[in-house]
Amino acid sequence: FEIPDDVPLPAGWEMAKTSSGQRYFLNHIDQTTTWQDPRKAMLSQM
């Protein structure tokens, strides 16, 4: 499912887009990137 862009990312995360428009996520805390939206895990725990 798609999460609306107005749902905030967890602390330390940033959303970016590739030149082709694909979204990816940067974790500044552990210096990693992922295609997986970290908000999905956050919302599934609620």
Rank of each mutant, 00 (worst) to 15 (best):
F1K: 03
F1V: 07
F1H: 01
E2Q: 14
E2W: 08
E2K: 15
E2S: 15
I3D: 06
I3K: 03
I3A: 06
I3Y: 12
I3M: 05
I3R: 01
I3H: 05
I3L: 02
I3E: 03
P4F: 10
P4V: 09
P4T: 15
D5G: 08
D5V: 07
D5Q: 13
D5E: 07
D5A: 12
D5F: 05
D5R: 07
D6W: 05
D6N: 14
D6Y: 09
D6H: 04
D6G: 09
D6I: 11
V7L: 09
V7A: 11
V7D: 10
V7Y: 06
P8D: 09
P8N: 04
P8M: 04
P8I: 02
L9K: 06
L9Q: 05
P10G: 04
P10N: 02
P10Y: 00
P10W: 00
P10F: 13
A11L: 11
G12D: 07
G12Y: 03
G12S: 06
G12H: 04
G12E: 05
W13E: 04
W13N: 05
E14K: 06
E14F: 04
E14I: 06
E14L: 02
E14G: 11
M15I: 10
M15N: 05
M15Q: 09
A16V: 08
A16Q: 10
A16G: 07
A16R: 11
A16Y: 08
A16K: 11
K17N: 12
K17V: 12
K17R: 12
K17S: 10
K17Q: 10
K17W: 10
T18A: 04
T18D: 14
T18K: 04
S19D: 05
S19R: 13
S19T: 11
S20Y: 13
S20D: 15
S20K: 15
S20H: 15
S20V: 10
G21C: 04
G21M: 08
G21A: 06
G21L: 02
G21Y: 03
Q22M: 10
Q22V: 11
Q22W: 04
Q22K: 09
Q22R: 07
R23G: 08
R23M: 09
R23A: 09
Y24V: 06
Y24S: 01
Y24F: 07
Y24Q: 02
F25R: 01
F25E: 00
F25P: 02
L26K: 11
L26T: 06
L26V: 11
L26S: 04
L26C: 05
L26G: 03
N27D: 07
N27R: 03
H28M: 12
H28I: 03
H28Q: 07
H28F: 04
H28K: 10
H28D: 03
I29W: 09
I29A: 13
I29K: 13
I29F: 05
I29T: 12
I29Q: 07
I29Y: 11
I29C: 08
D30M: 10
D30C: 08
D30P: 01
D30V: 07
D30N: 15
D30T: 13
D30I: 11
Q31P: 00
Q31M: 11
Q31R: 14
Q31W: 04
Q31H: 13
Q31G: 08
Q31A: 09
Q31F: 03
T32I: 15
T32A: 06
T32F: 15
T32Y: 15
T32P: 00
T32E: 08
T32S: 11
T33A: 04
T33F: 03
T33I: 03
T33Y: 02
T34M: 02
T34F: 00
T34H: 06
T34G: 02
T34R: 02
T34D: 00
W35Y: 09
W35L: 05
W35M: 08
W35S: 09
Q36L: 13
Q36D: 10
Q36G: 05
Q36E: 04
Q36Y: 14
D37L: 01
D37T: 01
D37R: 01
D37C: 00
D37S: 02
D37Q: 01
D37M: 01
R39N: 01
R39M: 00
R39H: 01
K40G: 12
K40I: 02
K40A: 08
K40C: 07
A41P: 13
A41S: 13
A41I: 02
A41V: 13
M42L: 14
M42E: 15
M42S: 13
M42P: 14
M42Q: 08
L43G: 14
L43P: 13
L43W: 10
L43E: 14
S44T: 15
S44A: 14
S44H: 11
S44D: 08
S44F: 06
S44Q: 10
Q45I: 10
Q45P: 07
Q45N: 13
Q45V: 08
Q45E: 15
Q45Y: 05
Q45S: 13
Q45C: 09
Q45R: 10
